[in-house]
Amino acid sequence: MHTTLRNLFVAALAAGLIPYEAALAQSAGCAISRDAGARQVLSCPGGVKVTAEAGASFRLTDRNRDGSPDSASLRRKAILVDVDSSQHTGGFQVVTPQAIAAVRGTQWAVDVAGGKTSVLVVSGSVAVRRPAGEPVVLSPGEGVDVSSSTEPLVVRRWPAPRVAALLARLGQ
């Protein structure tokens, strides 16, 4: 029985009936739903919730194999990550082509587009750095745009219209 279900799952994935991101989220132990905006909402063990913009290209990973994802790899579009530090042990990070954003417990959005990564903190604090470089720490309402250049990262308080536009894409 188990083999038959697995074969059906693999066939549905190959046929494109199950999005690749959904398959990866299932393997990370997350429950997947869709909201009215066709966004994926992944509710994961250990107090991790990820809301992905429609068409986002991402993958969740449970590197320490404790049953809760502790990392997301984001290649395109935006995700909103909400980590409940009272339930989630260790940190959580989002890795993009340009940046690594890591926290212990907070809510933040990461957007990859046009050769840059933008990170916005909704609550808590987030350390952001290039793969090789010094981190900057963001507080609520602050954001940073990370390109592939080597210029220092500049933390800015994002204007309300920019915050609203990004969060609207994520159903907030």
Rank of each mutant, 00 (worst) to 15 (best):
G46E: 05
R104G: 13
A113C: 00
D84N: 11
E53G: 03
D82G: 13
Q87P: 04
R59Q: 13
P152R: 08
R129L: 11
V155M: 06
W108K: 03
D111F: 01
W108Q: 12
S139G: 15
N64M: 00
I32D: 03
A23Q: 00
T51R: 06
A102T: 13
G115Q: 08
Q40C: 13
G143P: 08
S57L: 09
A132M: 06
E21Y: 05
G114N: 11
E134R: 15
T89S: 13
K116W: 07
G105W: 06
D84H: 04
W158V: 05
A72T: 07
D111V: 00
A127M: 15
V155P: 09
G46T: 02
R59A: 15
V103D: 01
G67C: 14
D66I: 06
S85R: 05
S149D: 15
L153A: 12
V121E: 08
W108I: 05
T106E: 01
A31V: 15
L138N: 04
R75D: 10
S43Y: 00
R156C: 06
E21S: 09
A102Y: 10
L120Q: 05
A28K: 10
V144N: 00
F58H: 04
S118C: 08
S57N: 05
E142Q: 15
L153F: 10
V41A: 05
R129G: 03
G46R: 06
V121R: 09
Q40I: 12
S149Y: 09
A160E: 14
R130P: 01
C44V: 10
V95Q: 00
T51G: 05
E21L: 01
T61G: 12
R63C: 13
R130I: 02
R39A: 08
P152N: 13
G29E: 09
S139R: 14
A54F: 04
P152K: 02
G115S: 10
G90L: 07
K49M: 04
T61A: 12
G91K: 04
V154M: 06
G141S: 07
A78Y: 00
R104K: 14
S147D: 15
S27F: 08
F92K: 02
A54R: 15
R39L: 00
C44L: 05
P97R: 09
L120C: 11
Q107A: 03
A72S: 01
V110M: 04
V155N: 08
P69G: 05
R59K: 08
A54E: 07
V136R: 11
L24E: 12
V154S: 12
P135T: 14
S86L: 10
V112S: 04
V50R: 10
S118I: 09
S148V: 03
V41Y: 04
Y20M: 11
G143E: 11
P131I: 01
S86R: 14
E21P: 06
A101Q: 01
K49I: 11
Q93N: 12
Q26D: 10
A72V: 02
P45R: 02
R157M: 06
R65E: 15
D70V: 06
V41T: 07
S33R: 14
S139M: 07
V81K: 03
T89F: 03
